[in-house]
Nucleic acid binder design. Structure first.
Lengths: 343, 343
DNA sequence: GATGTGTCTGTAAACGATAACAAGGAGAGG
DNA sequence: CCTCTCCTTGTTATCGTTTACAGACACATC
């Protein structure tokens, strides 16, 4: 292959015997162009296989048509689904979405913010790694910002949230309805809003049912599989192990299942019941299949796209929060054989 | 927040009482600048919170420092791992990676190629959705291209491949060693190289062991979970169902497990044994845990980064192919209780 | 024929950065 | 004191695109 330089609008102009302004007018359908001239330009465009240069355009128009999405874990289906919803909606508005992984790590997140700044993203959708770590950097961003799933220490930005309290409450009530008395929770980190809210909702709902949670039934993980595994083993090793465990995110649920599976004498649906927060691909493969609190993940991305494009058009409009409701998907793992409901 | 325009190099120059050239020199450490001047510039840089404009830089230097990665499925951990390896290696070389999802769909892939072209990506790493659909478009790309995991109809580009034949052979031999006679395969689409090679390797290896595969034991799926599920049910419903099934990718393996789980009388490790191609998060959670042919996914991304950066420096060097070896991870699901090894 | 009104097209100045070139000043050597 | 170098800095053209402005022409109207 010859070292083909990219064709420019100038090359097209020459070949079509017009000025670059006219070519630009044809490409963008702005301004009047005689049909015959337009045809000549279009032909030149095609013959040369012209591909517009997005940066040059961005520089001239002061708009990159680029949106950044920063997620803590590209591997987590939850964030992949958000990307999917965001991307589809953004594409309709002529915007491209660049997804970057922060690894849930403030330093990498800082780098990601900086990179998207350099490429002049016109809007940033982010699930922050930490409620305060990059607060200053985020405040300094000159473009619209929309937070998804997690809040920041300051309430300055549009938000797409899930009603975590409500989701956790539904899980708690289902456990109680299934007859459980010894109910434990593997909670998330308490410096993240979902971590706090899910714990809160769960504990409060049990209290409302007259059940107090002893401290040894409340374990704090870090939303990773490994912590779900080890904390679950701690719970199973108690003198009076819980008969029901609520796990506060999908990865920890994986670890929890692994722990139950490998723990002598423990068996899902027999000695211990489980409800997880967020669906996972294996939900339907366990025995019994897994009951989970499920979130409208893709819809979260769609809403984020709407919020941020709205703000791009009206930067000074009041801050807006969209709260979506989670839904309990009951598949069976919330019960154990030994406990009978007497309804 | 005030509608802060981005600071430019000119703003910095004014504040530091120097010319834009000097600022540029300080930023890029090119050319000599007096220590005192440099300090003044650095201070201005910080005080204004200057963020360089990547496009303007790209236009002036004719280099976007941008690489594109096009994958058929962002949700598949396999591709997420490739991204991870690619990204880390690229970052060391000052390159940013933009991952785009083609949905394994030639039309969306075409759009992705076009988008990366507009943003003047300096290299494209791609797992093509189809061996020929976008061949012309890919040939027209003016920048280095590296194919990962799948070939194209023409052999013009650097390649990172897995020895699929070898991986499938190992699976076949393990089944035979475990005493199986009735061995089936859920193969991938035959218009993709991995699909062809894994089938080929498996069938040939069995033939070498003196086992012919009857046609009803060879099912063709599309690498999605749903096809794994339905094809597995077809196999289980045969008059003489297989005692061993090899599933040619991770998603179909999920479907296969689901089918076994839900099929009356079928049980993993008792009536039917399974080996999957590619590891999955639940491999260790099934009972027995899953035996799989595992690939060095992250390493594939690293190799792709190396190939493409090498080609960016020497565009005319001969085409190069890197073949990485898969590894059999034996966990137990390749056997069934009924069959005893007599070694 | 002078004037006005469109329609169409070209000229040239941005946008934000880099880099080739030029030029000023300081110090060294004669 | 003149000249030669070297160090440091500024001037300016350039990258590919858009767009405000102006100009050229055709046609209609009075």
């Amino acid at each position: 292959m010859p070292p083909t330089r990219h064709q420019t609008i100038k090359d097209v102009a020459e070949r079509a015997q017009v000025s670059t302004a006219t070519v630009s007018r044809v490409i963008n359908r702005t301004g009047k162009v005689h049909a015959k001239t337009a045809a000549r330009v279009t032909r030149a465009l095609e013959e040369l296989g012209y591909v517009p240069n997005a940066w040059a355009r961005a520089m001239a128009t002061d708009g990159s048509d680029l949106m950044g999405l920063i997620v803590p874990d590209i591997l987590n289906p939850f964030f992949a689904a958000i990307y999917s919803g965001l991307n589809e909606t953004a594409k309709h508005r002529g915007l491209a979405v660049w997804m970057v992984d922060s690894g849930d790590n403030p330093e990498k997140e800082r780098q990601a913010l900086h990179m998207l700044g350099r490429y002049r993203a016109q809007g940033i959708i982010i699930t922050p790694a930490h409620p305060a770590a990059n607060l200053a950097a985020i405040e300094r961003i000159g473009t619209p910002v929309c937070l998804v799933d997690r809040r920041l220490a300051k309430n300055l930005w549009d938000l797409v949230l899930i009603d975590n309290v409500n989701g956790a409450r539904q899980a708690a009530q289902l456990f109680v309805a299934a007859g459980h008395q010894r109910i434990a929770i593997i909670a998330g980190p308490q410096d993240s809003t979902p971590g706090v809210e899910r714990l809160q909702g769960f504990v409060d709902a049990l209290a409302a049912e007259g059940l107090d949670m002893p401290p040894e039934y409340i374990k704090f993980g870090d939303f990773r599989q490994e912590s779900g595994f080890s904390l679950a083993r701690e719970l199973l090793a108690l003198d009076a192990p819980p008969t029901a465990i609520f796990s506060c995110n999908n990865l920890m649920t994986m670890g929890l299942l692994q722990a139950i599976h490998s723990y002598p004498g423990a068996a899902l649906g027999e000695t211990v019941a489980v409800i997880g927060f967020d669906d996972i691909p294996i939900s339907t493969l366990t025995d019994p299949p897994l009951t989970v609190v499920s979130r409208p993940m893709k819809e979260m991305g769609v809403q984020a796209a709407k919020l941020i494009t709205a703000r791009m058009e009206a930067p000074e409009k009041p801050q807006e929060t969209v709260v979506l409701g989670p839904q309990l998907v009951i598949r069976g793992s919330e019960k154990i054989a030994g406990l009978l409901r007497w309804i």
